[in-house]
Simulated assay, not measured.
Amino acid sequence: MTAVAAEATAPALGLHTDLSNEAYHADKTSLSSSGARKLLPPSCPAKFRWEQDNPQPDSKTFDYGNAAHKLVLGNGPDLEVVPGPRWDTSKAKGHIAEIRERGGIPLKQHELDMVKAMAAAIRQHPLAAALLDPAYGAPEQSGFWIDGPTGIRRRVRFDWLPSVQSGRLIIPDYKTTTDASNDAMQKDIDKYGYNQQADWYEEGARSLGLGDESAELLLIAQEKKAPYLVNVIGIEFGSRVIAGAKNRRAIETFAECTRTGHWPGYADDEPNYLALPGYAENRDKELYL
């Protein structure tokens, strides 16, 4: 498909309340928050482009997360149990393939029990339950808008949006993790760029007319082992300022690569000169210099 044809079939600008996850991710003309993070170090535009053109295969990690999203948020692929303790038999493999072909998620019984228990734990958490109350919001809504400085299309898929758009907009985003403690999540904010996601979603909400400068994303992090603890986390202001600068760099990179058709890797025309890691340089200076 040509760039012009892709642009013509891309979702319209604005908020979509019923766009499928597949249709959202099929739009290669726009840049998402996860895509923006893939454009920047330690990744690079070449990796971004390859992953866009070569969708990643299903994995158990994604299955758990998507299954939990289904039961916690109330929207997503069907969850189907594959009976029996072994999945390496020809019968089990055929069943799993059929489920995936239908767009479902295959699970063992104990895995389905786990995500059901996670959803129940969310409903018992006062703040998380209030933020995800189905009486006052809806899941999986997509937005598309034009970036003013570059003119590129940007996109966002909100886990959840409140149905009453008055007052301060709070945007819950659900994450499953092995450790939802403050220390672990602080590291994950850096590792996975959750501060960039917060800045992106907040800007997206403003651009779509859903909120003002007070709009805020809150992470609802939940552990995947009993007792399935929940931690509701906001991103500190300074971290979001840094995130805004990183997102702007990614947007400009995407615009330039799209314009030129060149998606560079680590070093295309000259070597990268590297120093020792800071800790190693300090250690060796003390020992040998």
Rank of each mutant, 00 (worst) to 15 (best):
V4K: 13
A5C: 05
A8N: 14
L19K: 00
S33K: 09
R37Q: 07
L39R: 02
S43H: 13
R49H: 12
W50P: 02
Q52K: 14
N54C: 09
P57F: 08
K60A: 12
A68V: 14
K70E: 11
L71I: 12
L73C: 07
G76H: 10
D78Y: 05
K93Q: 15
A97D: 13
A97V: 08
R102L: 10
R102A: 14
I105W: 01
L107P: 00
R123M: 06
Q124L: 14
A130W: 06
D133N: 15
P134K: 12
Y136T: 14
Q141R: 15
R153D: 04
R155V: 01
V156W: 01
T177I: 08
T178R: 11
D179Y: 07
D183P: 00
D188A: 14
N195F: 03
Q197A: 08
D199I: 01
E203F: 12
L208Y: 13
E213M: 13
E223D: 13
E223F: 06
A226I: 02
F237R: 14
V241E: 13
N247W: 00
T253Q: 08
R259P: 05
R259G: 03
H262M: 08
D269T: 15
E270K: 15
P271E: 10
A275R: 11
R283M: 14
D284W: 15
E286Y: 14
